[in-house]
């Protein structure tokens, strides 16, 4: 039977793949996937400020980027939040030095001195070029990201029990930040980050005691390309959440002032930089609650871009990085 060139081409595309997923790689996929979810949840439960889109990645990888179509999509996939503090959180506030309530349902506790996240790798092969910009946003992770000995036994075991119980019901591990217990593991910064000697790109890094860890980069394919509009990267913080980081970028360096507006109408004056991506404006702020809109102005007060976010409809639609 004769085949058309297109059929033959398609057949060649299909190839004769004998690739199979070996058990070791599958285990690694699940381990890293579970860790990613915990980290992501921790980040989006943040206290002081930032992302969405994961993409990411990268982080959005704690963050998801706006989609290239319509350019106004941000993942506002906010899970149901607790409405108050649990008995465990109250005990943490009472018995863990340095613990503090950061929202109606979230409690932050300091990383124990000397505690290390055993799965964390340093630097990840990146290099920060130029200035780093503090965002004022705290970075958080989960209790069980650490060894048991890092925390009081009652705390670690209680968190673990809840995670396992929730995991049984929900199908996967749940980080302690889901239950409103967030361990401070540094602060978030913006910087131009270079990989493998390439020119740098804007990204979020975490500064933990002077050591920087790459968190996530920004952008859909045409992010900051000439002629494109603003893209926004923000965490899936809910209205009752502690402040989180929001970052936006436009391929236009005329922006001198930016306003981040949350769903309650509260306006936060953001920061603007033109050095991380020359010719463009990178903007950021620590936004309380859920981000709704970003408005960029030039030096004359004219609006350069007015970007409203809308809720995405599902996991696939939301996932950009």
């Amino acid at each position: 039977m004769n085949q058309t060139p297109l059929e033959l081409f398609t057949e060649d595309l299909q190839g004769h793949s004998t690739a199979s997923l070996d058990p070791q790689r599958l285990a690694e996929v699940k381990s890293r996937g579970a860790r990613r979810r915990r980290t992501r949840t921790a980040l989006t439960a943040a206290v002081a400020a930032i992302v969405v889109g994961g993409s990411g990645a990268w982080l959005t990888s704690g963050l998801d980027g706006g989609s290239s179509s319509g350019r106004d999509t941000v993942a506002l996939d906010v899970a149901t939040r607790p409405t108050g503090l649990s008995d465990l959180q109250k005990r943490v506030l009472r018995d863990v030095p340095g613990a503090e309530r950061i929202s109606v349902w979230q409690v932050a506790l300091p990383e124990p001195p000397g505690a290390k996240d055993p799965m964390e790798t340093a630097s990840d092969g990146f290099e920060v070029q130029g200035e780093t910009f503090a965002t004022g946003v705290t970075s958080y992770t989960g209790v069980t990201m650490y060894d048991r000995a890092a925390f009081p036994g009652w705390l670690y075991d209680a968190v673990l029990a809840i995670e396992e119980d929730a995991g049984s019901a929900e199908g996967q591990p749940v980080g302690s930040t889901d239950m409103g217990l967030a361990v401070v593991n540094g602060t978030l910064e913006l910087a131009c980050v270079s990989f493998q000697g390439a020119d740098c790109v804007p990204a979020v890094v975490r500064n933990e005691d002077g050591q920087r860890h790459y968190e996530w980069g920004f952008g859909t394919e045409d992010f900051l390309d000439a002629g494109t509009g603003m893209e926004v990267f923000a965490g899936n913080a809910g209205a009752e959440d502690a402040p989180s980081l929001a970052v936006a970028g436009v391929p236009n360096d005329s922006v001198t002032r930016v306003e981040f507006v949350n769903t309650a109408g509260e306006i936060v004056e953001g920061m603007v930089d033109h050095t991380m991506a020359p010719g463009s404006s990178i903007m950021w702020a620590s936004v309380p609650g859920a981000l709704a809109r970003v408005i960029a102005y030039d030096s004359g007060g004219a609006v350069v871009d007015d970007h409203s976010l809308r809720t995405c409809t599902g996991g696939v639609d939301c996932e950009v990085r």
Binding site: A34, D77, G315
Partner: peptide, 11 residues
């Protein structure tokens, strides 16, 4: 796959 596992509950 890692990212899919991380959001397996959703997807």
């Amino acid at each position: 796959l890692e990212r899919t596992y991380a959001k397996w509950r959703t997807v």
